[in-house]
Design a protein around this nucleic acid. Structure first.
Lengths: 182, 182
DNA sequence: CGCCAAAGCGGACACGTGTCCGCTTCAACG
DNA sequence: CGTTGAAGCGGACACGTGTCCGCTTTGGCG
Protein backbone atom coordinates (compact mmCIF):
# COMPACT_ATOMS: atom_id res chain seq x y z
CA UNK A 1 0.00 0.00 0.00
CA UNK A 2 2.05 2.88 1.33
CA UNK A 3 5.60 1.84 1.96
CA UNK A 4 7.81 4.79 0.98
CA UNK A 5 8.68 5.52 4.61
CA UNK A 6 11.76 7.04 5.98
CA UNK A 7 14.56 4.62 6.63
CA UNK A 8 15.06 5.44 10.29
CA UNK A 9 11.35 5.13 10.94
CA UNK A 10 11.22 1.65 9.50
CA UNK A 11 14.21 0.86 11.63
CA UNK A 12 12.52 1.98 14.80
CA UNK A 13 9.40 0.11 13.93
CA UNK A 14 11.37 -3.07 13.55
CA UNK A 15 13.24 -2.51 16.80
CA UNK A 16 9.97 -1.93 18.63
CA UNK A 17 8.53 -5.15 17.28
CA UNK A 18 11.65 -7.01 18.23
CA UNK A 19 11.49 -5.69 21.77
CA UNK A 20 7.79 -6.46 21.93
CA UNK A 21 8.36 -10.03 20.84
CA UNK A 22 11.04 -10.41 23.45
CA UNK A 23 8.81 -9.06 26.21
CA UNK A 24 5.82 -11.12 25.14
CA UNK A 25 7.94 -14.24 25.01
CA UNK A 26 9.40 -13.83 28.49
CA UNK A 27 7.35 -11.65 30.84
CA UNK A 28 3.63 -12.24 31.11
CA UNK A 29 3.01 -8.61 31.89
CA UNK A 30 3.36 -6.63 28.69
CA UNK A 31 4.18 -3.04 29.55
CA UNK A 32 4.38 -0.71 26.63
CA UNK A 33 6.72 1.75 28.26
CA UNK A 34 9.09 -1.10 28.95
CA UNK A 35 8.97 -2.14 25.33
CA UNK A 36 9.71 1.43 24.32
CA UNK A 37 12.66 1.56 26.66
CA UNK A 38 14.03 -1.76 25.47
CA UNK A 39 13.71 -0.64 21.91
CA UNK A 40 15.53 2.56 22.77
CA UNK A 41 12.74 4.85 21.60
CA UNK A 42 10.38 7.28 23.30
CA UNK A 43 6.81 6.45 24.10
CA UNK A 44 5.66 8.81 21.43
CA UNK A 45 7.52 6.87 18.81
CA UNK A 46 6.01 3.61 19.92
CA UNK A 47 2.54 5.04 19.89
CA UNK A 48 2.85 6.57 16.47
CA UNK A 49 3.92 3.31 14.99
CA UNK A 50 1.22 1.41 16.87
CA UNK A 51 -1.66 3.67 17.87
CA UNK A 52 -2.96 1.31 20.52
CA UNK A 53 -1.65 -1.52 22.55
CA UNK A 54 -3.71 -3.85 20.39
CA UNK A 55 -2.23 -2.68 17.13
CA UNK A 56 1.17 -3.58 18.48
CA UNK A 57 0.12 -6.97 19.78
CA UNK A 58 -1.74 -7.73 16.58
CA UNK A 59 1.45 -7.16 14.64
CA UNK A 60 3.47 -9.25 17.06
CA UNK A 61 1.13 -12.17 16.56
CA UNK A 62 0.58 -11.54 12.89
CA UNK A 63 2.58 -14.53 11.83
CA UNK A 64 0.58 -16.86 14.04
CA UNK A 65 -2.64 -15.39 12.76
CA UNK A 66 -1.58 -15.82 9.16
CA UNK A 67 -0.71 -19.40 9.85
CA UNK A 68 -4.09 -20.02 11.38
CA UNK A 69 -5.90 -18.37 8.52
CA UNK A 70 -4.01 -20.38 5.97
CA UNK A 71 -5.16 -23.54 7.68
CA UNK A 72 -8.82 -23.03 6.92
CA UNK A 73 -8.82 -23.85 3.18
CA UNK A 74 -6.54 -26.80 3.82
CA UNK A 75 -8.95 -28.26 6.33
CA UNK A 76 -11.86 -27.68 4.00
CA UNK A 77 -10.11 -29.60 1.27
CA UNK A 78 -9.70 -32.63 3.47
CA UNK A 79 -12.83 -32.71 5.58
CA UNK A 80 -16.49 -31.95 5.53
CA UNK A 81 -17.28 -28.39 6.56
CA UNK A 82 -18.35 -29.07 10.12
CA UNK A 83 -15.31 -31.21 10.79
CA UNK A 84 -13.11 -28.56 9.23
CA UNK A 85 -14.68 -25.90 11.39
CA UNK A 86 -14.24 -28.07 14.46
CA UNK A 87 -10.60 -28.68 13.75
CA UNK A 88 -9.99 -25.05 12.99
CA UNK A 89 -11.55 -23.92 16.24
CA UNK A 90 -9.55 -26.53 18.13
CA UNK A 91 -6.48 -25.06 16.59
CA UNK A 92 -7.57 -21.60 17.63
CA UNK A 93 -7.98 -22.88 21.16
CA UNK A 94 -4.51 -24.34 21.05
CA UNK A 95 -3.02 -21.04 19.97
CA UNK A 96 -4.92 -19.22 22.64
CA UNK A 97 -3.73 -21.65 25.28
CA UNK A 98 -0.06 -21.40 24.48
CA UNK A 99 0.21 -17.76 23.62
CA UNK A 100 -2.20 -16.21 25.98
CA UNK A 101 -2.02 -12.92 24.15
CA UNK A 102 -2.89 -14.24 20.72
CA UNK A 103 -6.58 -14.31 21.06
CA UNK A 104 -6.99 -11.04 22.88
CA UNK A 105 -5.01 -9.37 20.13
CA UNK A 106 -7.05 -11.06 17.45
CA UNK A 107 -10.29 -10.04 19.03
CA UNK A 108 -9.15 -6.47 19.42
CA UNK A 109 -7.97 -6.49 15.85
CA UNK A 110 -11.40 -7.59 14.76
CA UNK A 111 -12.99 -4.71 16.61
CA UNK A 112 -10.64 -2.33 14.89
CA UNK A 113 -11.51 -3.79 11.52
CA UNK A 114 -15.21 -3.73 12.31
CA UNK A 115 -15.41 -0.02 11.78
CA UNK A 116 -13.82 -0.60 8.40
CA UNK A 117 -16.74 -2.94 7.62
CA UNK A 118 -14.44 -5.90 7.54
CA UNK A 119 -13.90 -8.81 9.86
CA UNK A 120 -10.19 -9.07 9.37
CA UNK A 121 -8.32 -12.17 8.28
CA UNK A 122 -9.68 -14.33 11.09
CA UNK A 123 -13.20 -13.34 10.24
CA UNK A 124 -12.58 -14.14 6.60
CA UNK A 125 -11.31 -17.60 7.47
CA UNK A 126 -14.40 -18.23 9.55
CA UNK A 127 -16.63 -16.94 6.80
CA UNK A 128 -15.07 -19.42 4.39
CA UNK A 129 -15.68 -22.28 6.77
CA UNK A 130 -19.24 -21.23 7.53
CA UNK A 131 -20.10 -20.69 3.89
CA UNK A 132 -18.97 -24.19 3.08
CA UNK A 133 -21.10 -25.56 5.86
CA UNK A 134 -24.07 -23.57 4.78
CA UNK A 135 -23.68 -24.78 1.23
CA UNK A 136 -23.56 -28.35 2.47
CA UNK A 137 -26.61 -27.72 4.62
CA UNK A 138 -24.82 -28.73 7.80
CA UNK A 139 -24.51 -25.27 9.31
CA UNK A 140 -27.34 -22.95 10.29
CA UNK A 141 -27.73 -20.38 7.57
CA UNK A 142 -28.24 -17.56 10.04
CA UNK A 143 -24.82 -17.75 11.67
CA UNK A 144 -21.98 -15.56 10.55
CA UNK A 145 -18.34 -15.12 11.41
CA UNK A 146 -18.98 -12.27 13.76
CA UNK A 147 -21.31 -14.49 15.76
CA UNK A 148 -18.61 -17.06 16.21
CA UNK A 149 -15.98 -14.53 17.10
CA UNK A 150 -18.21 -13.17 19.82
CA UNK A 151 -18.92 -16.62 21.16
CA UNK A 152 -15.38 -17.88 21.29
CA UNK A 153 -14.44 -14.69 23.07
CA UNK A 154 -14.87 -16.61 26.29
CA UNK A 155 -11.32 -17.78 25.72
CA UNK A 156 -10.03 -14.46 26.93
CA UNK A 157 -11.88 -14.79 30.18
CA UNK A 158 -11.04 -18.36 30.99
CA UNK A 159 -8.97 -18.77 34.13
CA UNK A 160 -5.77 -20.68 33.73
CA UNK A 161 -6.92 -23.70 35.71
CA UNK A 162 -10.16 -23.99 33.79
CA UNK A 163 -8.52 -24.42 30.45
CA UNK A 164 -8.28 -28.17 30.40
CA UNK A 165 -11.84 -28.71 31.49
CA UNK A 166 -13.63 -25.97 29.63
CA UNK A 167 -11.87 -24.66 26.55
CA UNK A 168 -12.69 -27.52 24.22
CA UNK A 169 -15.88 -28.41 25.93
CA UNK A 170 -17.35 -24.99 25.23
CA UNK A 171 -16.24 -25.16 21.62
CA UNK A 172 -18.28 -28.33 21.31
CA UNK A 173 -21.34 -26.68 22.77
CA UNK A 174 -20.98 -23.76 20.39
CA UNK A 175 -20.65 -26.13 17.48
CA UNK A 176 -23.82 -27.91 18.48
CA UNK A 177 -25.58 -24.59 18.42
CA UNK A 178 -24.17 -23.72 15.04
CA UNK A 179 -25.00 -26.97 13.29
CA UNK A 180 -28.17 -27.43 11.37
CA UNK A 181 -30.70 -29.46 13.28
CA UNK A 182 -30.34 -32.99 12.01
CA UNK B 1 -22.65 -11.74 58.81
CA UNK B 2 -20.43 -9.03 60.29
CA UNK B 3 -22.35 -5.83 60.72
CA UNK B 4 -21.13 -4.19 63.93
CA UNK B 5 -19.35 -1.46 62.02
CA UNK B 6 -18.68 2.03 63.05
CA UNK B 7 -21.46 4.46 62.40
CA UNK B 8 -19.46 6.96 60.35
CA UNK B 9 -18.06 4.17 58.21
CA UNK B 10 -21.50 2.89 57.33
CA UNK B 11 -22.41 6.46 56.52
CA UNK B 12 -19.54 6.90 54.14
CA UNK B 13 -20.29 3.62 52.50
CA UNK B 14 -23.81 4.72 51.84
CA UNK B 15 -22.71 8.08 50.52
CA UNK B 16 -20.28 6.42 48.18
CA UNK B 17 -22.97 4.13 46.82
CA UNK B 18 -25.29 7.05 46.38
CA UNK B 19 -22.68 8.97 44.44
CA UNK B 20 -21.87 5.88 42.40
CA UNK B 21 -25.51 5.38 41.50
CA UNK B 22 -25.76 8.98 40.45
CA UNK B 23 -22.69 8.75 38.25
CA UNK B 24 -23.73 5.45 36.72
CA UNK B 25 -27.17 6.82 35.98
CA UNK B 26 -25.95 9.95 34.21
CA UNK B 27 -22.42 9.74 32.83
CA UNK B 28 -21.42 6.72 30.82
CA UNK B 29 -17.84 7.02 31.97
CA UNK B 30 -17.62 5.80 35.53
CA UNK B 31 -14.59 7.37 37.18
CA UNK B 32 -13.90 6.20 40.68
CA UNK B 33 -12.06 9.30 41.75
CA UNK B 34 -15.03 11.35 40.67
CA UNK B 35 -17.33 9.18 42.73
CA UNK B 36 -15.06 9.64 45.70
CA UNK B 37 -15.07 13.38 45.23
CA UNK B 38 -18.84 13.53 44.87
CA UNK B 39 -19.24 11.43 47.98
CA UNK B 40 -16.90 13.77 49.80
CA UNK B 41 -14.44 11.07 50.77
CA UNK B 42 -10.84 10.29 49.89
CA UNK B 43 -9.86 7.63 47.40
CA UNK B 44 -8.55 5.50 50.20
CA UNK B 45 -11.95 5.42 51.81
CA UNK B 46 -13.64 4.43 48.63
CA UNK B 47 -11.17 1.66 48.01
CA UNK B 48 -11.40 0.24 51.48
CA UNK B 49 -15.13 -0.03 51.22
CA UNK B 50 -14.92 -1.46 47.73
CA UNK B 51 -11.56 -3.09 47.04
CA UNK B 52 -11.96 -2.97 43.29
CA UNK B 53 -14.00 -1.12 40.80
CA UNK B 54 -16.05 -4.25 40.29
CA UNK B 55 -16.94 -4.64 43.92
CA UNK B 56 -18.42 -1.19 43.82
CA UNK B 57 -20.33 -1.74 40.61
CA UNK B 58 -21.58 -5.09 41.83
CA UNK B 59 -23.07 -3.41 44.85
CA UNK B 60 -24.59 -0.65 42.76
CA UNK B 61 -26.35 -3.21 40.63
CA UNK B 62 -27.10 -5.55 43.46
CA UNK B 63 -30.78 -4.79 43.45
CA UNK B 64 -31.11 -5.56 39.77
CA UNK B 65 -29.19 -8.76 40.21
CA UNK B 66 -31.39 -9.86 43.10
CA UNK B 67 -34.43 -9.18 41.00
CA UNK B 68 -33.07 -11.26 38.18
CA UNK B 69 -32.14 -14.11 40.48
CA UNK B 70 -35.56 -14.13 42.06
CA UNK B 71 -37.08 -14.55 38.62
CA UNK B 72 -35.59 -17.97 38.02
CA UNK B 73 -37.76 -20.06 40.35
CA UNK B 74 -40.84 -18.19 39.21
CA UNK B 75 -40.14 -19.01 35.60
CA UNK B 76 -39.49 -22.63 36.47
CA UNK B 77 -42.84 -22.87 38.19
CA UNK B 78 -44.65 -21.71 35.09
CA UNK B 79 -42.70 -23.21 32.22
CA UNK B 80 -40.72 -26.21 31.22
CA UNK B 81 -37.03 -25.87 32.03
CA UNK B 82 -35.75 -24.95 28.58
CA UNK B 83 -38.42 -22.29 28.15
CA UNK B 84 -37.67 -20.97 31.62
CA UNK B 85 -33.98 -20.81 30.80
CA UNK B 86 -34.74 -19.07 27.54
CA UNK B 87 -36.91 -16.46 29.19
CA UNK B 88 -34.40 -15.93 31.94
CA UNK B 89 -31.57 -15.35 29.50
CA UNK B 90 -33.75 -12.99 27.51
CA UNK B 91 -34.29 -11.05 30.68
CA UNK B 92 -30.58 -11.00 31.32
CA UNK B 93 -30.07 -9.60 27.84
CA UNK B 94 -32.65 -6.95 28.53
CA UNK B 95 -30.89 -5.87 31.69
CA UNK B 96 -27.58 -5.80 29.92
CA UNK B 97 -29.00 -3.68 27.13
CA UNK B 98 -30.48 -1.02 29.34
CA UNK B 99 -27.88 -0.81 32.03
CA UNK B 100 -24.73 -1.41 30.14
CA UNK B 101 -22.78 -1.87 33.34
CA UNK B 102 -24.94 -4.58 34.84
CA UNK B 103 -23.48 -7.51 33.06
CA UNK B 104 -19.86 -6.49 33.30
CA UNK B 105 -20.32 -6.09 37.03
CA UNK B 106 -22.04 -9.43 37.29
CA UNK B 107 -19.35 -11.19 35.37
CA UNK B 108 -16.63 -9.60 37.45
CA UNK B 109 -18.51 -10.53 40.57
CA UNK B 110 -18.60 -14.10 39.42
CA UNK B 111 -14.88 -14.11 38.94
CA UNK B 112 -14.44 -12.79 42.44
CA UNK B 113 -16.68 -15.49 43.82
CA UNK B 114 -14.93 -18.15 41.78
CA UNK B 115 -11.95 -18.16 44.07
CA UNK B 116 -14.37 -18.71 46.92
CA UNK B 117 -15.56 -21.82 45.07
CA UNK B 118 -18.93 -20.32 44.49
CA UNK B 119 -20.64 -18.96 41.41
CA UNK B 120 -22.42 -16.13 43.11
CA UNK B 121 -26.15 -15.52 43.00
CA UNK B 122 -26.33 -15.41 39.21
CA UNK B 123 -24.51 -18.69 39.00
CA UNK B 124 -26.87 -20.21 41.50
CA UNK B 125 -29.88 -19.10 39.52
CA UNK B 126 -28.42 -20.63 36.40
CA UNK B 127 -27.60 -23.83 38.23
CA UNK B 128 -31.22 -24.11 39.32
CA UNK B 129 -32.42 -23.69 35.77
CA UNK B 130 -29.91 -26.12 34.34
CA UNK B 131 -30.59 -28.73 37.00
CA UNK B 132 -34.27 -28.65 36.19
CA UNK B 133 -33.51 -29.10 32.52
CA UNK B 134 -31.14 -31.92 33.21
CA UNK B 135 -33.72 -33.66 35.36
CA UNK B 136 -36.25 -33.32 32.57
CA UNK B 137 -33.72 -34.63 30.09
CA UNK B 138 -33.96 -31.56 27.90
CA UNK B 139 -30.59 -30.06 28.76
CA UNK B 140 -27.19 -31.61 28.14
CA UNK B 141 -25.97 -33.09 31.36
CA UNK B 142 -22.43 -31.86 30.85
CA UNK B 143 -23.23 -28.15 30.89
CA UNK B 144 -22.92 -26.14 34.06
CA UNK B 145 -23.60 -22.56 35.10
CA UNK B 146 -20.02 -21.48 34.62
CA UNK B 147 -20.20 -22.63 31.01
CA UNK B 148 -23.20 -20.45 30.37
CA UNK B 149 -21.72 -17.47 32.13
CA UNK B 150 -18.65 -17.70 29.95
CA UNK B 151 -20.73 -18.00 26.81
CA UNK B 152 -23.06 -15.12 27.46
CA UNK B 153 -20.03 -12.99 28.23
CA UNK B 154 -20.19 -11.85 24.62
CA UNK B 155 -22.73 -9.34 25.84
CA UNK B 156 -19.96 -7.21 27.25
CA UNK B 157 -18.24 -7.05 23.92
CA UNK B 158 -21.21 -6.33 21.74
CA UNK B 159 -21.08 -2.98 20.01
CA UNK B 160 -24.03 -0.73 20.55
CA UNK B 161 -25.32 -1.00 17.01
CA UNK B 162 -25.11 -4.78 16.98
CA UNK B 163 -27.44 -5.25 19.90
CA UNK B 164 -30.67 -5.53 18.02
CA UNK B 165 -29.36 -7.99 15.50
CA UNK B 166 -27.13 -10.15 17.63
CA UNK B 167 -27.93 -10.18 21.34
CA UNK B 168 -30.96 -12.45 21.20
CA UNK B 169 -29.80 -14.30 18.16
CA UNK B 170 -26.67 -15.50 19.93
CA UNK B 171 -28.67 -16.53 22.98
CA UNK B 172 -30.69 -18.78 20.68
CA UNK B 173 -27.57 -20.34 19.27
CA UNK B 174 -26.21 -20.98 22.72
CA UNK B 175 -29.48 -22.55 23.77
CA UNK B 176 -29.37 -24.88 20.78
CA UNK B 177 -25.96 -25.99 21.91
CA UNK B 178 -27.12 -26.52 25.47
CA UNK B 179 -30.23 -28.54 24.68
CA UNK B 180 -30.20 -32.27 24.59
CA UNK B 181 -30.21 -33.59 21.10
CA UNK B 182 -33.83 -34.36 20.36
C1' DC C 1 26.66 20.52 -1.67
C1' DG C 2 23.44 23.00 1.21
C1' DC C 3 18.56 24.26 2.16
C1' DC C 4 14.48 23.35 4.29
C1' DA C 5 9.83 21.42 4.75
C1' DA C 6 8.00 17.54 6.21
C1' DA C 7 8.53 13.32 8.67
C1' DG C 8 9.90 11.60 12.73
C1' DC C 9 11.41 11.71 17.46
C1' DG C 10 11.40 11.62 22.61
C1' DG C 11 10.04 12.62 26.82
C1' DA C 12 7.06 15.55 29.64
C1' DC C 13 2.36 15.54 30.73
C1' DA C 14 -2.53 14.43 31.74
C1' DC C 15 -5.41 11.10 33.55
C1' DG C 16 -7.31 6.89 35.90
C1' DT C 17 -6.54 3.03 38.93
C1' DG C 18 -5.20 1.21 43.02
C1' DT C 19 -1.83 1.35 47.35
C1' DC C 20 0.09 3.17 51.51
C1' DC C 21 0.62 5.38 55.71
C1' DG C 22 0.48 8.98 59.29
C1' DC C 23 -3.30 11.41 61.42
C1' DT C 24 -8.15 11.55 63.27
C1' DT C 25 -12.26 9.95 65.30
C1' DC C 26 -15.19 6.66 67.39
C1' DA C 27 -16.89 4.13 71.07
C1' DA C 28 -16.01 0.81 74.80
C1' DC C 29 -14.65 0.63 79.34
C1' DG C 30 -13.11 2.13 83.78
C1' DC D 1 -16.48 11.77 81.48
C1' DG D 2 -11.46 10.75 80.14
C1' DT D 3 -8.48 7.45 78.25
C1' DT D 4 -7.07 4.66 74.67
C1' DG D 5 -6.43 1.49 70.95
C1' DA D 6 -8.33 0.18 67.01
C1' DA D 7 -11.17 1.37 63.08
C1' DG D 8 -11.40 4.58 59.76
C1' DC D 9 -9.91 8.46 57.01
C1' DG D 10 -7.86 11.22 53.19
C1' DG D 11 -4.80 12.46 50.10
C1' DA D 12 -0.09 11.79 48.40
C1' DC D 13 2.09 8.44 45.66
C1' DA D 14 3.38 4.78 42.32
C1' DC D 15 2.41 3.02 38.00
C1' DG D 16 0.52 2.28 33.20
C1' DT D 17 -1.69 4.14 29.22
C1' DG D 18 -2.04 7.27 25.76
C1' DT D 19 -1.43 12.43 24.05
C1' DC D 20 1.05 16.50 22.77
C1' DC D 21 4.39 19.44 21.16
C1' DG D 22 8.91 21.64 20.45
C1' DC D 23 13.23 19.89 18.65
C1' DT D 24 15.96 16.92 15.32
C1' DT D 25 16.79 14.31 11.27
C1' DT D 26 16.11 12.97 6.67
C1' DG D 27 16.39 13.14 1.99
C1' DG D 28 14.67 15.43 -2.32
C1' DC D 29 15.70 19.41 -5.06
C1' DG D 30 17.91 23.34 -6.84
Amino acid sequence: MNRPRRADAADNRERILEAARAVVATADEVRLNEIAKRAGVGQGTLYRHFPTREHLLAEVYRQDVDELVATAPRLLAEHDPVTALTRWLDRLVEYARIKHGVFAAVEAGVRKDLSAHSLGPIGDALTTLLDAGRAAGTVRPDVDARDLILLVGYLTRLEQDEWDTRARHLIRIILEGVRSRG
